[in-house]
Structures are given as structure tokens and as C-alpha cells.
Amino acid sequence: MLLGYALRRFGVAAVTLFVAVTLMFVMIRLVPGDPVQILLGPRATPELQARLTAELALDQPLLRQLLIFYGNLLQGNLGVDVFSGRPVTLIVLEQLPHTLRLIFASVLWSVPIGILLGAYAAARPNTLFDRVSAVISVGVVAAPAFVVALLSLLLFSVHLRWFPAIGAGEGFWDQLRHLVLPAFAIGLSWIGYIARIMRASMLEVMGADHIRTLRALGVAERPIVLIYALRVAVLPVVTIIGVGVGFLLSSAVFAEIVFARPGIGKLVIDAITTRNYPIVMGAVLMSTALFVTATTVADLINAMLDPRARAGK
């Protein structure tokens, strides 16, 4: 049953990616002007322009162009860097691990805290803890990652000098030290987000009939909350974490700029300022693929945890 669900889910993901790629193509074409000019910008050499014209098959009918576009993508060909002439795929793949590391670090510290905060608040509704944590979680959601990044840079790097301001560092410990502030900045609003969803979910579950059944059986409150309620309440959060990768990816772009870290965000911004558009498009497509994969995996994990999801849908 789970296998069937997984196949179906991957099918959906593939279709989504396919449509996304098509939308990108349409978007490029909707912009008035010569696509080669738009994609390569004014600085490209004539040879490159000729090469791209050939690669995009611009002399061919539109539908055929689209097919060639798909063909290139399927071969992992996202075009070439306007300046160096290196394949975009390679350049993006070089930068991707930096971003992934940052996202992973942010998830690692913020998700558990968010879940516990939300669950704890829900288990004690209307107490001081609940109220305070509700305000805090709204508060931290309210702070956009790049604002937190700037403020923490100002406070912890420039003023207190606790953490390095720029770069990704060398060697494990140094890299870790460089990760602290950006991961903090990205994760902070994410904590509030998770906590709020967890709290809402947990409150719903704590009011459910099956929790009353357990109470009527004489089960103590602690196992009710920590085992039976949490196990059900965490399900929507799992799905949200998948969606959240897209959110974190967006925040990572800013964190990479603020802390001058390498990564896919920095790559894109630099490419936009130098009008190196193949890189921009390649990176956007790659991050979309990453996002779609993340939501798919989250749904699969959800299905593993929830017998109903496996059977239904």
C-alpha cells in the first residue's frame, strides 16, 4: 500500500516539475524582445549568442523549441555561464551543498524547539506559559529572516564580536562557528511557525474523543500528551516541514547575502547583478526541483506515520 502511495506521489511530483519547467519557458517567452538578448544580457560574446540561438533552436517552430528545451533539461543541460562558458549545472551543484548545509542546520535546531514549544503550550492551555509562548511565537514569526540576520550581525558580530561576520569558514569547527548566526536568523521565525502549527494541531487532538477514551482508561496525562497525542498531532507538522524547505530556501538567499556566504542564493544575486541569466534560470529550476522533492519526501514520511494517509487518497 505504501509503495503504491509512493509511486503515485512521485508521479504527482514529476508532473508538477514538468509544468513548472513549462511555465518557466512560457515566462521567458512572454517577455518582449529577443530571448537570446534577454537570456544572455548585453555582455555576451557573439559566439555565445550564436551558440545559444542554436541550442534553443530559435529558428524552429515554438513547439519544437519547447521539446528541445525539455530534451536539454533531461540531459541535465541547463545552459552555460555567460562569462566562463562552464555548464550551469556544474556551477549550481557546486554551490548547492553550502545552502543545503545552512537549511539543514536551521531545521535541526528550530524544528524540535518549535514542536516542543507548541506541544507544551497546547498541553497547558490558558496558562501563563501558553500565553507567553503564543506571543513569542507570533513575535518571532513576525521577524523576517533577513531583518533578524541584519540585527544579529549588528549585535553579535559587529558589537559583541562573538561570531564571525562573513564567509563560510574553513574546517569543521570554523564552519560550524560561521553557521551559527545564519542558522539562527533563518530558524528563528521558523520556530514560531512550527510552534503555532503544532499548538493548533495539538489543541485539536487534545480535545479529540480518543484522548477522552484514554483518560477514561486511567492513563496519566504525561503519557497521553507525550505518546498518544503527540504522535497524532505531529502529522501536519511533518507535511509543513516539507513545505518549509521552500520557505527556508528563500530565507537562505538573504542569509547568504548578509553573511557573505557562498551558496545558491549568493550565486543568483551575483548572476542577476552581472546579468548572467542562464545561471539565474538554472538555479531557480534547481531550487524548484529541490523544493518539490522536499514536499514529496515529507508526504511520504507522513504516510509512513499515518495509516489513514496510506490507505486513503
Binding site: D209, H210, T213, Y228, R231, V232, D306
Partner: peptide
């Protein structure tokens, strides 16, 4: 329909 925990 709701008296039992759905994931156990």
C-alpha cells in the same frame, strides 16, 4: 468513529 486513536 472518533473514540479510538487513528495511528495505533
Amino acid at each position: 468513529m472518533t473514540a479510538l486513536n487513528p495511528v495505533f
